[in-house]
Each structure stands twice: as structure tokens, then as C-alpha cells.
Simulated scan of single mutants.
Amino acid sequence: MTTDYQQARESLGIRLRELRISCSGGRLSGAQLADRLGAGWTKSKVSKLENGKQTAVADDLRAWADATGHPEAYDGLLAQLRGFESHIRSWRRQLASGHKPVQDAITSEHERTRVLTIWENNLVPGMLQTADYARHVFTRHSDLYQSPRDTEEAVRARIRRQEGLYEPGRKYRITMWEAALYSQVCPPSVLAAQLDRLASVIGLDTVELGIVPFAATLGIYPGNGFWIYDERRVVVEDWHAELWLDDSNTVGTYLRVWKTLQESALYGTDARAVINRARQVLSAS
């Protein structure tokens, strides 16, 4: 993904250089263009944008197109930017208005999805979170990213999305590593209720909940969590950003990863036993 993103950024830089060289008033040097662009622009910034070392924003592209005498090029530049930027959604930008808009965006994906395939290695998936558990997760994220606190609105949006668990025709294939059962991102009493909630969904006809125990032999290491929507898109969370990946080869890779991890999972009464074991450890601590 980093390579694809960098290639797209370099491609945009090449187009920016073409516009500078073909300026309607004659070719401009990087320093001359920076002077024409004005405050906040330097020769170094021009160079970084042209060489794919810095990501432009929409205002940069508008200013560039106007300064080089090619205002008609703006729409094309913006389309290029959106084409690769939409795949890497930085948390800083997404959370600028709080968590609820992020929840609303992912809800639209859920609504058009019939089969949702999930791997989580360190948290209970949002689709199965209790309100109290989700509240603590959102609060910790807000602290980390110093984003607006719209915790209650975000919790309500996440819980409403769980109505899909009870809609006929949907399928949630959820596989978790046992470590997620012990992650105390909330007080013990909240985690205990969350574990009870997990055990309660086992047996729902829309849910296939598998737990990969610590002692299981793994076909591959348990990396980042990811969500696959109808085999058309995979969403991967990292600390700096959320990655939305659409190409079929990438989606296929994540499906293979999920299937490999899923082979080590326990289901039904065996999965419930793993959850109960975590519950007992929590009660004894």
C-alpha cells in the first residue's frame, strides 16, 4: 500500500512539474513559482511536491493551477489527489470533527454489505461491543489524537449499527485472537460485561464467532485488525490512518490471511469455553 500510495503521489508531482514548465507566461523555475505563489510557499515545498516527497492539499493544487496559468487543470489535479488520498484516511483529518462522522462513514459501508468478514487481534470488534466498552475505546482514542469529544454520539452510532446482527440475510464472520479477551482498555467490570456479551452472540444465525486461542498453531502471525466488505473492499486500521483498499488482488490477500487465521479458531462451545476462561481470570484478579 505504501508503494502504491507513493507512486500515485509521484505521478501527481510529475503533472505539477509539467504545468510549471508549460506555464502560459513562459517556463518558471521552482524559486520563481514559489515567489508567485506567495506566503507559505518556498522553493523546497515546490520541489517536494514535484518529487512526491510531500502530499498536496486541495488549496495547494488550486494555487498551483492558477499560478502557472492553467486554472482549467485544477479539476484533474484534484481528481488525482482524491484517487489515492481516499484510500489513506488519516486519523488526524478524519477525527477533526470527532468520532461520529467516522462512524457514519463506516455505517454506509455496512448498510450495503451482506457478508462482513472481520479479524481482530487486540480489541473486541465494534459490531460486538457493549456501549460501555465502546465508550472507553472512543475516550482513549480522543485522548491519543486530541480530537473533539463526541463520545456519546459515536457510541450511539456504533450501537445502532449492531442492528444488522439481527437482520435475516446478513452474515458476520468474526475471528478474534484470544488476546482481545484480556485487553483491559476499560475497567474490569466493563470488560466482564463485554465478555458476557461475546458469549451471548454465539449461536446467532447471522454470526460466526471464532476465537484463536493462545496455544493454537498459527499458519501466519496475527497482524493488524481488518474488515472485508463483501469481498469488494478491505478496511485496515493503523495508528496513523485507516486504509481503504479496493483492488481485487489486495482484497484477495486479506481474505487468504483471514482464512489462514480462521483455520486455527475455535467455535461454538469451544469458543465459549475460551471466553469463560478469560472471564474467570478477570474475576480472580
Rank of each mutant, 00 (worst) to 15 (best):
T55C: 01
L282H: 12
A131R: 09
L198D: 06
V185T: 12
T260L: 07
R20W: 02
R277M: 05
R9W: 04
I106D: 04
L123S: 12
R36I: 04
W41M: 13
Q194I: 09
R15N: 08
D247H: 00
R17P: 12
P222T: 06
R279L: 13
T2G: 08
Y229E: 01
R135Q: 14
E163V: 05
D247W: 00
D104Y: 00
V274T: 10
E152K: 03
V201A: 02
R114Q: 13
L61G: 14
K45D: 15
T3E: 15
R140E: 13
L282W: 12
A79M: 12
W227S: 01
Y74V: 11
D60A: 07
V207I: 14
Y267M: 04
V115F: 04
C186P: 09
V274E: 09
W177F: 14
L37R: 09
E18C: 10
Y172C: 00
G98D: 08
S11C: 03
G69E: 10
I88T: 11
V257A: 02
R17T: 13
V234Q: 05
G223L: 13
F138P: 11
S147K: 01
H87P: 01
L16P: 15
V115E: 02
A278V: 13
A131N: 06
G223E: 11
A271S: 11
G169V: 08
M127W: 12
I202M: 11
A154Q: 06
E178I: 07
D150A: 01
T260W: 02
T175Q: 04
R89Y: 02
Q7I: 06
E85C: 04
A199Y: 10
R233T: 14
L128Q: 06
Y182T: 13
D196R: 09
D238Q: 12
A58V: 15
V124L: 02
Y254W: 13
H70F: 04
Q162D: 03
E18R: 15
A180H: 06
T68W: 01
P213K: 05
D132H: 01
L37M: 14
A216Y: 08
R173V: 10
A278T: 14
W239H: 06
D205R: 13
E109I: 14
L33S: 11
A241C: 12
H70P: 05
V102A: 09
I228E: 02
A216Q: 11
Q94S: 14
P187L: 02
G76T: 06
H240M: 14
M1C: 07
G30Y: 01
P71H: 05
V236S: 00
S44C: 06
E163A: 10
